[in-house]
Structure formats: C-alpha cells, structure tokens
Computed example of a mutant assay.
Amino acid sequence: MTVPFSLVGIDHVVFIVDDMDKALRFYHDVLGCRPGYTYPALGMEQVWCGAALIVLWDITHPGGQKAAPPVAGGRNVDHVCIATGPFDHDELRAHLASHGVAIDREALHGGARGMGHSFYVKDPFGNTIEIKGPAEYPDGRG
C-alpha cells in the first residue's frame, strides 16, 4: 500500500497546561525554546523546539476549555523527546537544578539518531520531557 504523501518528521506536539506564564518560563528558560505562533483567542502559545513546535494550550482560558481532558488528571501523552546537540552532563544537571527541575532518571538507549544519553524531567504540569543528546553509537553498537 502506498500513501499519497511522504513523511518528514514531527511538526508539533500539544501539551495541556493550566498556567501559561509558568509554562512559558519553563519552555523558554529551562529548555531554551524560542517564541512561536500565538493564538490569544484560543489561550494557545507555541514555542519553537529546533525545527518543531511545542504547543501549550491553557485549559483555564475560555478558548482552551475544549482541550480539557474528559477525566481530571488524565494523561494524553507519555513523553516528548527533544533531540539536542552535544552537552556536558554535569552542566545540564547544574542548569536543571538552578531552575528547581528534578531529574527523574538518566538513561543510555536508542532513539531516532542512535544510542545516546537522555535526561528525563517533568515540566510544571507533569508532562515528561526527554532531553536526548546526540548519538554516541549511531548504529547502536559500542
């Protein structure tokens, strides 16, 4: 079966939030995302994460009411992996600590770019973000 399009990659993910200022501080200050498109009537802000967008949709805003999950506290995404360039692991640990962001776990495992080191953190709304460095072993072998 052929499909009438070619896949390019992830365009965006949408996270439900309930405090837009807090969300923007985290994504700008902690992760270094740049401001993207804004939709004030919807209570929605987008931030650039490399070539992809993270959409923040505030369910406390009248325009975001339809985004509220049907079950209070129900989750709709397990995690999002953000691919990064090389980084010093100790510097990243210090940066996260300086923003009061706890590291849930660290791991070395495969991803789209191969085997690499990952740090898992939570944003202020409980969404899990995987910060994944470049491949240490592009084909998964040491």
Rank of each mutant, 00 (worst) to 15 (best):
G142I: 14
H12Q: 12
A112N: 12
I82P: 00
M1T: 15
L42K: 11
R113E: 14
R25W: 03
G64F: 00
G36P: 03
N76H: 10
F26R: 03
L7H: 11
G74W: 03
G133Y: 02
R105E: 14
Y27P: 06
N76T: 15
A135S: 13
H61V: 06
G140I: 11
L31R: 01
V3D: 11
Y39I: 15
P134D: 07
F87V: 14
G43A: 06
V14F: 02
C81R: 04
L7R: 09
G36D: 12
G32C: 02
P4L: 09
P86W: 05
G74T: 07
A52V: 05
S118E: 12
R93D: 12
G50S: 03
W57I: 14
D58G: 01
W57H: 14
G111A: 11
C81I: 13
I16G: 04
P4M: 08
A72M: 05
D11R: 01
F87E: 12
P4S: 14
G9F: 04
V8L: 05
P40H: 08
K132M: 07
D139F: 03
H95E: 11
M44Q: 13
D19G: 07
V30I: 02
C33V: 12
F26P: 04
W48H: 14
G114S: 07
V121D: 06
H95T: 15
G9C: 08
D58Q: 01
F15Q: 00
A102L: 05
I103H: 07
P4I: 11
A97R: 09
